[in-house]
Every structure is written in structure tokens, then in C-alpha cells.
Simulated assay, not measured.
Amino acid sequence: MPHSFRLSQGRDLVTIMIIQGPHASAGSLGNDLLSHLQSLAHAAGRTLELCTCGGLRDFVARVRAVKPTTEFMLLDPGDLAQQVQVHPEAGLGDALDKLATPYIEVHDDSDAALEPRDSSHGAPVATIIINGDLATSYQIALGIALRQLDG
């Protein structure tokens, strides 16, 4: 079951959602990074919600259940990239093709990138990969998302 952690205060509108798959302990988001990302979003007048998923099934379900109030997503499959390739029947490609919300893929390892999407509708706005530095990947992705929402 997905775990949601609300980073916004006093607002029900979610403008940016992070959907994160499982990571080895060194690759997961820490509280300091979450606080920093929340501060950046708040300074831009946006809210931010984090949903961590323990497996591929939860990850796909969360992508399918994106709220209409979500204006942008940062999608971090973490250690699920190989499972996505081995189990296309899990439906991540279909979920991304039906997704109306723009998204950016975030990775800390080039081996974790998802397969390129054939459909322009299901393609990410950008794919950010800073090998070994998830924090920088998230900061760059959030910056792009905030600029997209501002324009």
C-alpha cells in the first residue's frame, strides 16, 4: 500500500506530487532533502506531496490514481526499473500513456531509467539522471516543474 507524506500545510491543493519507488537505503529521500524541496515549492506558491511505494503494483496504482488537482509529477521508480521491463503486464506503460499530468523522471543511476516511451502523450517532459546524486536530480527536476507551471 502506498505511503503518503504531506509536505504542504494548510492547503488541500496538490500541485506537485513525487511518486517514489523503493530505493536502497542510501538512495532514498531524506528529511533534509524533503524539507528543502518543500521550501522551494512553497516559495513558488506551490504545494508538494510525497507518495512512497513499496513495489511495482503500488507504483502503477499510484500513477493511475493521480488526483485532478495534481499539476505536475516527479516520477522516481527507484529500484523498480528492471521489474518494469520484465513485467510489462504490470501496466506502467499503459498508466503513463493515459496520464494527463505532465511528469519528469528522476533517477540517481542511468541503469534505473525507464525505457523510452514511443507515445508522445506518455513521454516525460524530461528525464533527469545525475549518477550517484539523487538530491541534485530532484532539485533540477523540481526547478523544471516550477518553471513549467509558472509559464
Rank of each mutant, 00 (worst) to 15 (best):
M1H: 11
P2R: 04
H3L: 13
H3I: 06
Q9E: 15
G10E: 15
D12E: 14
L13D: 14
V14L: 02
T15N: 08
T15Q: 12
T15V: 06
M17R: 15
I18W: 02
I19R: 00
I19V: 10
P22K: 00
H23G: 00
A26K: 10
G27P: 01
S28W: 07
S28T: 12
L33R: 06
L33W: 08
S35C: 08
H36R: 15
H36A: 14
H36L: 13
Q38G: 10
S39C: 12
L40V: 15
L40I: 12
A41F: 09
A44W: 07
G45F: 07
G45A: 03
R46M: 06
T47M: 03
L48I: 04
L48G: 05
E49I: 01
E49L: 11
L50T: 03
C51T: 14
C53G: 00
G54T: 01
G55Y: 08
R57I: 08
D58C: 01
D58G: 01
V60T: 04
A61L: 07
R62L: 06
V63N: 01
V63I: 09
R64D: 09
R64T: 05
V66E: 06
E71N: 09
F72D: 01
M73I: 13
D76G: 02
P77E: 05
D79P: 01
D79Q: 11
L80W: 01
Q82L: 13
Q83Y: 09
Q83I: 04
Q85A: 15
V86F: 11
V86L: 15
H87V: 06
H87C: 08
P88C: 04
P88D: 02
E89M: 05
A90N: 04
D97I: 07
K98M: 13
K98T: 10
T101G: 02
T101W: 07
T101N: 05
Y103A: 02
Y103M: 00
Y103C: 02
Y103F: 14
I104F: 10
E105I: 04
E105C: 11
E105T: 05
V106G: 01
A112Q: 15
E115G: 12
R117V: 02
S120C: 07
H121K: 13
H121Y: 13
H121A: 15
G122E: 04
G122F: 08
V125W: 14
A126M: 13
I128S: 06
I128D: 09
I128R: 09
I129P: 03
N131A: 12
G132F: 05
G132C: 03
D133M: 08
L134A: 02
L134K: 06
A135S: 14
T136C: 12
S137T: 08
I140T: 13
L142K: 06
A145L: 05
L146E: 11
R147K: 15
Q148P: 00
L149G: 04
L149D: 06
G151F: 12
G151T: 11
